[in-house]
């Protein structure tokens, strides 16, 4: 028996919009810790890890650890039928091959049930090692989204370099080249407008912009994004989900041949 009641149902809607273009089918894991997912894109270049902690739900009942295979496009279709202010409850019975999403309007005058078929997914779970990152950049998520979008009109890859001068995003393409440098800026009115750069060692890595642009679909989840970089390791692009958890995207770097 599974029953997860999320008062801020819009969070789940936003999570699906953030990941459904990257991953087609995925197993959602439910345990005492929370509702989570780990999945790779079809080419195994990027990985998404989601955690919605049990404490963030108004009601959280999960009698035993369960893994439920879902088609994210179908799940997104169903969640789009929930209003932005709706309370969403996820319900499942042991041994059932379906899951039910219940949407309640804030005034309780409309209650809808959507039943979705589950699927068997043979997915690989990867162990993500704890890493010491050479540099961690915290910046407004909208700014990061803008940079990725702007650069992708010039080139296909972005070089992200962190030095003591700041963080530089560079690209090069047939029509020319572009460099965008952000300096640390903590003298802002609101903390969510700050750019904070922690650097232990200078680092420079190259990534495919197509994936970065896909990650920025998580922008509505959080005003800030954290980008953690280490030489020859996948970058981590993290969007925190208010008081509940996170969506983390890992992207393998492009390596010089």
């Amino acid at each position: 028996m599974l029953e997860l009641r999320l008062v801020q149902g819009s969070l789940l809607k936003k999570v699906l919009e953030a990941i459904k273009d990257l991953v087609t089918d995925a197993n959602f894991d439910c345990s005492a810790t929370g509702f989570s997912l780990q999945a790779m894109d079809s080419s195994h270049v990027a990985l998404v890890a989601l955690l919605l902690r049990s404490e963030g739900f108004e009601h959280y009942r999960c009698d035993r650890n369960i893994s439920m295979g879902m088609n994210l496009n179908n799940m997104s279709k169903m969640l789009k039928c929930a209003g932005n202010d709706d309370i969403i409850t996820i319900k499942g019975d042991d041994g059932s091959d379906t899951i039910t999403f219940m949407f309640e309007s804030p005034t309780q005058d409309k209650i809808a049930d959507f039943e979705m078929k589950l699927m068997d997914i043979d997915s690989e779970h990867l162990g993500i090692p704890e890493a010491e990152y050479h540099a961690i950049v915290r910046m407004p998520s909208a700014e990061f989204s803008r940079i990725c979008k702007d650069l992708s009109s010039i080139g296909d890859t972005v070089v992200i370099s962190v030095t003591k001068e700041g963080v530089k995003f560079s690209t090069r393409g047939d029509i020319g080249a572009a460099n965008i440098v952000l300096r640390q800026n903590t003298t802002v009115d609101k903390p969510e407008e700050a750019t904070i750069i922690e650097m232990n060692e200078p680092v420079s890595l190259t990534f495919a912009l197509r994936y970065m642009n896909s990650f920025t679909k998580a922008t509505p989840l959080s005003s800030m994004v954290t980008i953690s970089l280490s030489s020859e390791l996948p970058v981590v692009v993290e969007y925190k989900i208010a008081e509940m958890g996170y969506v983390r995207f890992y992207l393998a770097p492009k390596i010089e041949e």
């Binding site: 790779m40 080419s43 195994h44 270049v45 990027a46 990985l47 690989e124 779970h125 990867l126 162990g127 993500i128 090692p129 890859t157 190259t206 495919a208 390791l233 996948p234 890992y250 992207l251 393998a252 770097p253 492009k254 390596i255 010089e256 041949e257």
Partner: peptide, 14 residues
Amino acid sequence: GSKQSMITTFFNKI
């Protein structure tokens, strides 16, 4: 030129 690496090169299956 540069080559796209895979995530499975860095993280092991568990």
